[in-house]
C-alpha cells in the first residue's frame, strides 16, 4: 500500500440518480482511489431521489476493490433525517460522521469524522478516537501545520486533508437556492439540481467569491492543494480528500495519485488541474494558514 491514500469525498450537489450512477461507475472502473464516500450530506430533502441509487453504486464500487464509506447528514433536523443517520450507523461498513447527532449510535464502532465536525485540537481528536474515530478529516479552515500537529499528537489515527474541490464553508437552516428563486425551503422545487457544481456568487464589483448549493455555501474558487508527498508524510498526514465535481474526476484522481507517488511534482500537478473544466480558479490559502481564497502557490 502506498504511503498516502486517496479518498473521494461525498458529492455535495444534487445530482440525479443517473448522473450519480454514471459518475461512480467511472470512479469504480478507472480512478486510482482507495476509498469512496457515498450518500447525501447537505440536504435531507434530496434523499428520496438518491437513496434508490446507492445500493447498486456501493456494490459496483466494492466489486472494483474500493473501500466504501457511508456519509451521513451534516445538519439533520427532521425525525426522518435523524432516523437515516441512526440506520446508517448500524452498518458494518465505515461511516462518516458529520454531526454529533451520529455519535451516540456509532460510538464504539469505527468511524470517520468529516470536515463538518469541529475537530480543532489534539484533545478533542483524542476524545473522538477513544470512541471509534479511525480517520479524521478536520474542518477546511485548518492549515496543514495544524492538521499535522494533531496527527503528530495522535499517531494511532489517520488524518486526512481536504485537497481538491470547492470548499464547504457554511450550512444554514435556510435554503439559498429556494430564496433566490423566490421560494421557501419547505416548497423548494429542488432548484439546486440546476447547478451541479453550485451557483456562483459574485460581489457587486464582479469579484468571484462564493457559491451556493441549497442550504450550503461553498467557495467560488476551487481548492487545489498540491503538496509534495514529504510535506504530508513528515507531518503524519496520510490521506488526501478529493471532493467530486462535474469535471473529469478520474483525471483529478490520477493527478493526485501521481503527485502522492512522487511521479509528478506539485507545480506540474497544479498545472494539469488548472487545465480541467473547473468552475473557477485554483486556491490553496487555507492549507498554508492564509485566507482560504488566496492562491499561496502559483501555477
Amino acid at each position: 500500500m502506498s504511503a498516502i491514500a486517496l479518498t473521494l469525498g461525498p458529492v455535495f450537489f444534487h445530482w440525479s440518480p443517473d448522473r450519480l450512477s454514471d459518475f461512480y461507475r467511472r470512479i469504480a472502473d478507472e480512478a486510482p482511489i482507495d476509498r469512496v464516500h457515498v450518500g447525501e450530506v447537505v440536504c435531507g430533502k434530496r434523499m428520496p431521489f438518491s437513496d434508490p441509487a446507492w445500493p447498486e453504486i456501493i456494490e459496483r464500487l466494492e466489486r472494483a476493490g474500493k473501500e466504501v464509506v457511508l456519509s451521513t447528514l451534516a445538519a439533520p433536523a427532521t425525525v426522518r433525517e435523524r432516523r437515516s443517520i441512526e440506520d446508517l450507523c448500524t452498518d458494518e461498513r465505515l461511516v462518516e460522521i458529520n454531526d454529533v447527532t451520529a455519535l451516540p449510535s456509532r460510538s464504539g464502532k469505527p468511524f470517520v469524522t468529516g470536515p463538518f465536525l469541529n475537530v480543532y485540537n489534539e484533545a478533542s481528536a483524542r476524545f473522538l478516537i477513544q470512541r471509534g474515530a479511525t480517520t479524521i478529516c478536520p474542518p477546511v479552515e485548518l492549515s496543514l501545520a495544524a492538521v499535522g500537529a494533531m496527527a503528530g499528537a495522535c499517531p494511532e489515527t489517520e488524518f486526512e486533508i481536504f485537497a481538491f474541490g470547492r470548499l464547504p464553508l457554511a450550512l444554514s437552516g435556510r435554503c439559498y437556492h429556494a430564496r433566490i428563486h423566490g421560494l421557501h425551503k419547505d416548497s423548494c422545487q429542488f432548484t439546486c439540481e440546476r447547478d451541479p457544481d453550485g451557483l456562483a456568487v459574485d460581489t457587486l464589483d464582479d469579484q468571484q467569491f462564493l457559491a451556493i448549493n441549497g442550504v450550503q455555501t461553498l467557495s467560488n474558487q476551487v481548492q487545489a492543494f498540491c503538496p509534495a508527498p514529504a510535506d504530508l508524510t513528515s507531518r503524519g498526514v496520510r490521506r488526501i480528500r478529493l471532493s467530486p465535481h462535474t469535471c473529469d474526476m478520474v483525471e483529478v484522481a490520477k493527478t493526485y495519485r501521481a503527485l502522492a507517488d512522487g511521479r509528478e511534482d506539485p507545480k506540474a500537478a497544479r498545472f494539469i488541474l488548472s487545465c480541467l473544466d473547473l468552475p473557477s480558479t485554483l486556491v490553496d490559502g487555507y492549507a498554508h494558514g492564509k485566507p482560504g481564497w488566496q492562491a499561496a502557490t502559483s501555477i
Binding site: E141, L167, A170, S172
Partner: peptide, 21 residues
C-alpha cells in the same frame, strides 16, 4: 447569524480569521 453557528468558515475564507479559530 444566518449560517449555523460554529460551522461557518466564510470569515476565514475572506480574511483568515474566523469565529471558531
Amino acid at each position: 447569524c444566518v449560517m449555523i453557528e460554529g460551522r461557518c468558515y466564510l470569515s476565514s475564507y475572506a480574511t483568515g480569521k474566523s469565529p471558531n479559530l
